[in-house]
Design a protein around this nucleic acid. Structure first.
Lengths: 201, 201, 201, 201
DNA sequence: CATGAATGAGACTTCATTCAT
DNA sequence: CATGAATGAAGTCTCATTCAT
């Protein structure tokens, strides 16, 4: 009979997710969210620290769902290398999706990027476990030389995030206000392929 | 030596365009635009009615440029039917581009849609002339039966806009906060093909 | 085994006293007090009417302690006149101490002054008894003519409070936002000396 | 016929000073200040960055006035050593005065201390010039050995501020919620006397 | 024309207080 | 008794818009 508080938190999150995806982050007011959750806006603060916190939690929930789905999508692939590549580039798609979904301009992006890194940090354990397992398979299938799956998984995630981050930073220049993710995706693919080939027997 | 006012208007528009595409509509302040145009924000009101008007003019200018480019792109195609279809679906792409570029959520879209219709209205003359010409070619090439090109052009535009409009309205439902333009494009293609075929000899 | 409620009340009061003296009245939140008392803030309302009531009780407790200490300090003096004067001016010091301790501005003071009068009222019985006793001594020692000690004590307290009150009111003027207590103290001394001399044989 | 903006700034500052000293920092609202200045509260932001900025400017203005007065007060003293000591300890009085005047609790103090350091920084040039001159006199009068007055003045100010700062920090301990400035003053006197004697011939 | 100045509306956030369990 | 939950009022701050000069 416990989770009453959790229920409320969940319904607020649901309301917030709807509002954020309808209105975008900036245009969503706490009044909106409160109305949607049938709660006074002040009450939201009983459950979440502030607007940004609410947004983080929304994105976090979406991240968990998306990444799980992506993992299932990737599993049918035959070779471990392919699974890994497909996962890490699909992950980038999610990033882009979130930004579009919540109408984040390049400028807001600059401000919120560290936040997203926190989100990824929060699901990193699970991502690491997944990647480790894929790498382990690769080892079993003699696709890779014997290696330490955990450390390698960590390295792969770090590299992928690093490339993404660099691309976002570069978009801060004066003449390119949108991030073109195609080359990022390519760079991730290329670099990781190199890495994975290096790991290969 | 009359163009002084027009020069000012143009440089303000340029500044506004930059700001809107960087920050999005909501996050752009008149201060931002004023700074970019090296003009006091109050002065902006001498040249434009208000923020929304400025935005409309920005979009209008872009529309003119984009549609002109599209028209040139389409001309090399062989058959009139193809030119027409390519133009009318390309036009939809422009719509989508504007929304993404300026970070407009589905909800703002609701508010601003009538405005966009006005924009299209403003360039409609030119669009109609272009389409009329294409239709005229089709008649000349015996692709179509003899018809009144102006009225037909108007009908085509109206149909294309109608389909788009309906799709946007439908996205207002609770569970679909993004507009998926692929089916819209398909529907436009399909309907117009029917229409054009119906017109064909 | 009755004192459970009183124990709670006491520990809350202790917590509140600490908070008020650390943060001042305004900056102290009921959350602060609740935390310090290891009690939910809502529970505070079971023991005290509201924040202001809590504050009054804190001040009241301090008043009792301070005035008792002052009474003991004053007793060693030789002549009754001196004891009385020392007590009534020392009392003013307490007033000033409370204000400083709890960061009360002259303006809050306006609002809370009636409250302090209530506090003094609450301990007035005891103050009257003490003053009566001093006056009685003075009569016994032939310092004063025969008089009714209770009524005289009451008169003295009233005069002392009146002078203080007038000084505080005067500080409401535009150009003097601090109360300078030195002249108040002097006026009390002077007036009461006159009074006591007038009573003297 | 300039200075209109400065006039407004000044009148706002005057209003703010009155409010802050009447109500204290926390209880003063921008509404209060706006009302007092006969200006919409939003307009205050046209002249000052925010509430804290307003407060800083108020304190800064007071600091300039107070320190000038103190300097004049100190000049009649005979020996340079005495002038310097009197000035540096008087300065501490000002610090205490500000805190009392604006009802700052020890806790707020923690938060606002860096701000006060900025204020002192802003008038430091003038203070340094004054101290340098006193030191120069001391050299001329053979009270001190030949020394570099500017550097020595800077050292003296730094030491005095350091001692004050340390005392404030120490007041953060659990059991002493008020700063007792008497020992601070003594420590400043003692240390600076040592220093000045060390400088003495 | 241009701008300094002013403001109302509305956003986020905090807090004393109330109430049902 | 105790508390989780809820809220209205109020405070700081931002911004589109207006107006007098």
């Amino acid at each position: 009979m416990a989770g009453k508080r959790d229920d409320r938190r969940a319904s607020i999150l649901e309301a917030a997710a709807q509002c954020f995806s309808r209105f975008g982050y900036d245009k969503t007011t706490l009044q909106d969210i409160g109305d949607a959750a049938r709660l006074n806006k002040a009450s939201l603060y009983y459950y979440y620290k502030n607007k940004e916190d609410l947004f983080i939690q929304v994105v976090l929930r979406e991240a968990e769902r998306y990444l799980s789905a992506l993992q299932e999508q990737v599993l049918p692939l035959t070779r471990a290398t392919d699974k890994i590549l497909a996962y890490l580039t699909g992950r980038l798609d999610y990033y882009r999706l979130v930004l579009n979904l919540h109408q984040l301009s390049v400028e807001s992006l600059q401000r919120l990027e560290p936040m997203f890194d926190d989100v990824y940090q929060a699901v990193r354990e699970q991502e690491l476990a997944f990647l480790s397992q894929l790498l382990q398979e690769g080892v079993t299938d003699r696709e890779f030389l014997k290696l330490q799956p955990e450390r390698a998984a960590d390295a792969l995630l770090t590299v992928a995030d690093g490339i993404k981050h660099e691309a976002v930073q570069r978009s801060r220049t004066r003449f390119a206000h949108e991030v073109d993710y195609a080359p990022v995706q390519e760079k991730i693919t290329y670099t990781l392929t190199l890495l994975l080939n290096g790991l290969r027997k």
